[in-house]
């Protein structure tokens, strides 16, 4: 009996049995992984219909581009991440889905992102700064607190804003982490126009839209301008035509707005760059996910066990083939 203790194969079999005994006890370890709590809010105002984006070489409108990139990002988000989906129009932001775990609710999130549409709009203005403030206020609610705000917009304020009356962000600044994600081309492009039933009606023409703000008092009264009157025509009396019927990504404006609101600015390109930017926001959570140790234990047992048999081959020792050969001769 004592001789078997000198036989390495006995020890190897004992080891394999021990490893397998450990495996059937289902030992689970924990693995720490990064997860992102996010709320994506998408601008659904008219300027987002401008077709100046490209997806695999095909011209796409900005909203369609955001939908596609968001869905691709959703696919890339690690399990345990949460994503809420919201829309912005007018001067308000609202959510369609409160944050949901991305792997368990992939279908629902993907469908809701796919149905984001300018027709959802409940108001026609595009007050980006006011909408952002509204979103940041919402982010203090239970269920949204602690999530990073990703605000997808082209930065096109319509009608143009009077910088004198921009909303103040002091109440929310620093309380919400997040970033403005800029969408749109650099060349001003025409904005599609739709009729009451949602059919395309060409583009907005210069005379369709106001080209400057005439609300309240100007920052610097244009004294000496034609028709200027301090009380009756504080912006001057002339009808001004500008470029407001065209739209491009107002990156500089968004960068300043982000700065005012205590957020980051990121021009949208692809999911990897977006996720890399999200990484720098400092909202990344570590989730603990179970790790199954059985493959490691079973793999080690496999090595030992196969070694027991293969050992017979390599050492050319006392295996049955040899016995048979011997008995044949």
């Amino acid at each position: 009996m004592r001789r078997i203790f000198h036989d390495w194969r006995w020890w190897a079999l004992l080891g394999a049995a021990g490893l397998l005994a450990a495996a059937v006890l289902r030992p689970y370890g924990w693995r720490e992984a990064a997860a992102y709590p996010l709320v994506a809010v998408v601008d659904i105002t008219r300027s987002m219909n401008v077709r100046d984006m490209r997806l695999r070489g095909v011209a796409t409108d900005r909203l369609g581009y955001v939908r596609t990139i968001l869905r691709r990002t959703l696919r890339r988000l690690p399990c345990g991440s949460r994503l809420g989906v919201g829309v912005f129009t007018g001067r308000r932001t609202t959510l369609l889905l409160m944050p949901l775990e991305v792997c368990g609710h992939f279908h629902e999130l993907s469908r809701v992102i796919g149905r984001l549409d300018w027709r959802m709009a409940w108001a026609a203005d595009s007050r980006v700064a006011a909408g952002l403030l509204d979103a940041m206020t919402l982010m203090a609610r239970p269920g949204l607190r602690g999530h990073a705000l990703l605000w997808f917009t082209d930065g096109h304020e319509a009608p143009p804003v009077n910088p004198r009356y921009q909303p103040g962000f002091s109440a929310v600044k620093g309380k919400v982490k997040g970033m403005l994600v800029g969408v749109g081309g650099t060349v001003p492009a025409p904005i599609p126009k739709f009729d009451e039933d949602g059919r395309r009606q060409g583009f907005y023409r210069p005379e369709d839209v106001p080209h400057r703000s005439t609300f309240g008092e100007p920052v610097r009264p244009p004294r000496g301008a034609p028709g200027f009157h301090p009380r009756n025509a504080p912006f001057g009396g002339e009808w001004v035509l500008g470029q407001e019927h065209l739209s491009s990504l107002r990156g500089e404006y968004l960068r300043r707005l982000a700065d005012t609101a205590g957020l980051d600015y990121h021009p949208l390109s692809d999911p990897s760059a977006l996720l890399a930017a999200v990484d720098t926001l400092g909202v990344t959570e570590t989730v603990r996910r179970p790790r199954d140790w059985r493959p490691w234990l079973g793999g080690a047992a496999w090595l030992l066990w196969v070694g027991v048999y293969a050992g017979g081959w390599v050492s050319g020792g006392d295996d049955r083939r040899k016995n048979r050969k011997r008995s044949n001769t």
Partner: peptide, 25 residues
């Protein structure tokens, strides 16, 4: 004033809950 698509037909109650909770916003 517009219609909002908030959650597809699904058997997952947690997704329904996430959509219904927005009525309190």
């Amino acid at each position: 004033t517009g219609a909002l698509y908030q959650c597809p037909l699904t058997g997952r109650r947690s997704a329904n809950q996430a959509a219904v909770a927005t009525v309190a916003l």
